[in-house]
């Protein structure tokens, strides 16, 4: 009973975090067709914004949404400065890897300069602890497990049930055709980045509520998000979401039975095996585009 509760809880929690980290990365890839290597830094910046607002005396309920909104603006600006001017160039994917890495590095060092290296913590979404099936858990973690699927569902509904979401899915597939039906390509690109940065900020707030924050806290989540996206398949938004939970449970099972030490090795072994059998990712079709 204890083992089951442990694995179930661990899997759901890690899966939720991974999904939250990966979905923004997947969104930018599926709409604009580039990998945003500053995604981890955006996560960190969102957490620092939240920390600063709380430090200025705002309540968490106010500070978190403001931080998320601010990050939407940051995402938009980032897109307008280091991505949009390059659209249409040869080797766009590689060039944007460099420019987003560079922007991320600038932001990271800016944060280090501004807020210093000392680790910080933001208040949890919900304070307190609870016992669940014989396992002690924090309410913050429970909140993440509950909130994440709601946000992902909202994103899915937006992309699949609204005309603007439809436009966002279309713009990646054929830019000329998108312009000829009257889509504002520039706005849609900005929107994709703004949503992705907001989701990153939210992931940062989740992380900062139970772990100490440092200016480099985004590096590991970015790597995880990349694994999730590659594992789930980069063709859709739902693939990475399922993959995130799958990896979460995989890690929970591995760390329970084989220990934390072996978990990364086993995860990569599973990843390599998956990609050998299905190079496009487990949940993917062959093409790019949200579904």
């Amino acid at each position: 009973m204890n083992a089951l509760a442990d694995i179930l809880f661990g899997g759901l929690f890690q899966g939720s975090l991974y999904a939250m980290m990966a979905v923004g990365l997947a969104l930018v890839w599926t709409t604009i067709g580039v990998f945003n290597f500053s995604h981890g830094v955006l996560m960190m910046l969102g957490a620092y914004f939240a920390w600063q607002l709380v430090d200025w005396g705002l309540t968490a309920a106010l500070a978190f949404p403001i931080a998320v909104l601010l990050m939407a603006g940051v995402g938009w600006v980032l897109q307008a400065t280091v991505v949009r001017p390059l659209i249409g160039r040869a080797n766009l994917v590689l060039v944007v890897v460099i420019t987003t890495l560079a922007a991320g590095s600038l932001i990271e060092n800016g944060v280090l300069e501004l807020w210093g290296p000392r680790s910080k913590q933001i208040p949890p979404l919900v304070a307190g602890n609870a016992m669940l099936g014989g396992v002690g858990v924090s309410l913050h973690q429970i909140a993440i497990i509950v909130v994440t699927p709601i946000i992902l569902l909202a994103l899915w509904l937006f992309l699949n049930r609204t005309r603007l979401g439809l436009a966002l899915r279309a713009v990646a597939q054929n830019e000329d055709a998108a312009r000829l039906v009257g889509l504002n390509v520039t706005m849609l690109y900005g929107l994709a980045f703004a949503i992705a940065a907001s989701l990153a900020a939210l992931a940062g707030i989740f992380l900062g509520g139970y772990r100490f924050m440092t200016p480099v806290m985004g590096a590991d989540p970015l790597l995880k998000a990349l694994i999730v996206v590659v594992f789930g398949g980069i063709s859709s938004i739902s693939g990475p979401i399922f993959a995130a939970y799958l990896i979460g449970f995989f890690e929970a099972i591995c760390s329970y039975y084989f220990g934390l030490y072996w978990t990364p090795a086993l995860l990569f072994a599973a990843l390599i095996l998956t990609l050998m059998i299905k190079p496009e990712g487990i949940f993917a079709s062959r093409s790019r585009g949200l579904a």
């Binding site: 005309r163 439809l166 436009a167 899915r169 279309a170 597939q173 054929n174 000329d176 055709a177 998108a178 000829l180 039906v181 009257g182 889509l183 079709s285 093409s287 585009g289 949200l290 579904a291």
Partner: peptide, 23 residues
């Protein structure tokens, strides 16, 4: 209507029609 328009490969016909009425 451009030449050899490949449209939006992963969208359904209904999706495309609804994009046509985006304006």
């Amino acid at each position: 209507v451009p030449q050899g328009n490949t449209l939006f490969p992963d969208l359904t016909i209904a999706d495309c029609m609804s994009l046509g009425a985006f304006s």
